[in-house]
Design a protein around this nucleic acid. Structure first.
Lengths: 242, 242
DNA sequence: ACCACTAAATGAACGGCATTCATTTATTAG
DNA sequence: CTAATAAATGAATGCCGTTCATTTAGTGGT
């Protein structure tokens, strides 16, 4: 269980220990045995993992590298997480807290969903390796994620959604969002058919004709198109508010 | 170099060709050096990889296991693929050829898209570890995938879609399909909020009320809902056919 | 017919990875 | 005071993808 890694509540949490690689100098060895003040906690592990991911990407996120970042032996991490997967979970839950749900309540439903969806996609476009983890993640293990669902559910309910369709609607939107997050990371020339171009005339022509007139990144055009279709289609499920 | 040191001396001149793992018995060692008839090719590697995946899942798909399946030393694989990623690519392209595009042409656009999307999702729901690979995969490297795009593009064009919106529309649908494929693999109790239930009343209520009345798997309800919304929304882009 | 080159196999390595275990030391509960 | 527990080290394990030297077989040029 993740034990809310919420930093709003707990403060920096990492601070506690001056032990953090403060001195640029030679990180002198800590002697074996339990230290007087704990060096590690979940919040600190989360912060270090994010720092590492930002600096080296997900390939650079290894248990050894994470331990080094925290100035600790790799095996020490296993007193706080059962496996690397738990580290990814901590990161995932933290990132979810960055998703903007502020539109639900003040703004009309369409606008709230639009803002939430773009924000959600943008956050995870930088963290696609987490998506396979999220997909199978029981919400119990991720308090921030659960909080997001609560806010969004309430927004749907207040907008007049029939209760029994809310979860399916959110799942449909999320599926689109996760798939679209991958799309952001695709190389620009992904659709260049190269030597096979003659064999695929219609597709090649479609790619060419789309190239000319994109406003922003091509992934944004597809995301906008699909999102607006989903908002319109799902919005039709709403009932008159009593 | 003279053939002075004949190692076969001890062996009773194993008549060249029976070397293939003919005998069900103990797969006797192939001697080093290039064999008269090539043992490996891409089709064989693809088939063996699929067999392995079906039997042991993606965790069981290791280069060593694949080599064993093909009765070959692991390093032999690298004469045919540059890296494991290439094996995944071969599998991906094969699977794409299983996606049903037969609706495009005979059936009306809505129905064709519906059939294609369900088929596409069902194929890759069993192969979600490939999704990160597909997402970044230049189509040049996957002829079957390119063929699918060609068929679908033509279907959209014939249905009256403006050429410059076809690629974005397909990408939007694909994003939804990939995200939904993950959803299929999620455990049934993924949304049980457990101990946090009181803190998330609206979400918990929504989950409860959806539980009672599902026809099939919950993932199917969300997929259907989103897909119909996308078909309706994207279909509105069509122009009158000239 | 020779010879250089390339292609396709073996088998022995390599470094990196997540994880486990025995051990040490400190704190906490009874 | 003492037993249990918590949190660290450090050594070791096993697997994984990949590389390299070597062996053998086919191929193309003169």
């Amino acid at each position: 269980m993740l034990e809310t890694t919420d930093e709003r509540a707990g403060m920096p949490a990492v601070s506690a220990t001056q032990g953090r690689n403060a001195g640029s100098a030679g990180t002198q060895r800590r002697r074996a045995g339990r230290p007087s003040a704990a060096v590690l906690d979940k919040a600190g592990i989360t912060t270090a993992a994010l720092e590492l991911i930002n600096r080296k990407g997900y390939d650079g996120l290894t248990m050894a590298a994470l331990a080094k970042e925290l100035d600790v032996a790799p095996s020490a991490l296993y007193n706080h997480v059962a496996a690397k997967r738990d580290v990814l979970l901590l990161v995932e839950d933290h990132l979810t807290s960055l998703v903007d749900v502020s539109g639900f309540g003040p703004a009309p439903w369409e606008e709230a969903v639009r803002g939430w969806a773009w924000s959600y996609r943008n956050v995870f476009a930088e963290h696609t390796p987490l998506i396979p983890v999220i997909a199978v993640l029981p919400v119990t293990d991720a308090p921030q994620t659960l909080a997001m669902y609560e806010t969004v559910s309430k927004g749907f309910l207040d907008a007049g959604f029939p209760q029994e369709r809310i979860v399916s609607s959110i799942v449909a939107l999320e599926s689109f969002i996760f798939g679209s997050a991958y799309d952001v990371t695709a190389p620009a020339d992904i659709f260049e058919s190269g030597s096979m171009a003659e064999a695929t005339p219609h597709f090649t022509a479609a790619v060419r004709s789309a190239e000319g007139q994109v406003d922003g990144p091509p992934a944004d055009a597809a995301f906008s198109l699909g999102l607006e279709a989903l908002i319109a289609g799902l919005g039709a499920l709403r009932e008159q508010r009593g």
